[in-house]
C-alpha cells in the first residue's frame, strides 16, 4: 500500500488519522507543523502528503507551495476546518488552485478519506 505523511497541529486528529490509515494497510508518519512536515518529507519520501492548512510556524499553504515547486507531480491532499473568519472553503480553494490532488473539509468520514486517497494515487 501507500506511504502517507500526515501533517496536522491537532494531536487528536493526527493520532486518529494515523490509526485509520494504518488499519487500511498504509505506512504512516506524522508531523505537527510545516517545518517538521518538510523535514519528514525529505527522509520519508511519501506517496501522499495529507496536510492541514492553518498551523503554527509553517502553514499548509507554504508546505504545498514548497513541495509543488520542487515537483508538481507530488500527490497532496489538503484538509481544513477553517478558523474564525478564515473559512475551510477559502483554505481548500486556495490549496486547489495551487494544484493539490484532493481536498477534504473537516470533519470528514472514513469513506471520504479513502475515496480521496484512491483518486490522489491515480
Amino acid at each position: 500500500m501507500a506511504k502517507i505523511l500526515v501533517i496536522d497541529d491537532e494531536e487528536q486528529l493526527r493520532d486518529l488519522l494515523k490509526q485509520m490509515l494504518t488499519r487500511d494497510g498504509h505506512e504512516v508518519q506524522t508531523a505537527y507543523d510545516g517545518v517538521e512536515g518538510i523535514r519528514c518529507f525529505n527522509n520519508f519520501h511519501p506517496d501522499i502528503v495529507i496536510t492541514d492548512i492553518i498551523m503554527p510556524n509553517k502553514d499548509g499553504i507554504e508546505v504545498i507551495t514548497e513541495l509543488l515547486c520542487r515537483d508538481s507531480k507530488i500527490a497532496i491532499i489538503a484538509i481544513s476546518g477553517g478558523r474564525r473568519a478564515i473559512t475551510a472553503e477559502f483554505n481548500l480553494e486556495s490549496a486547489e488552485l495551487l494544484g493539490v490532488k484532493g481536498i477534504l473539509s473537516k470533519p470528514f468520514t472514513r469513506e471520504q478519506l479513502r475515496e480521496t486517497i484512491q483518486l490522489a494515487l491515480v
Binding site: 502553514d59 507554504e62 478558523r83 473568519a85 478564515i86 486556495s94 495551487l98
Partner: peptide, 17 residues
C-alpha cells in the same frame, strides 16, 4: 492573525498563479 493568514494565503496563491 486571521488577516495575516488570509493575506499570506491569498498572496502565495496569486503569486504562484
Amino acid at each position: 492573525l486571521d488577516m495575516q493568514q488570509y493575506y499570506k494565503t491569498l498572496f502565495m496563491v496569486i503569486n504562484q498563479n
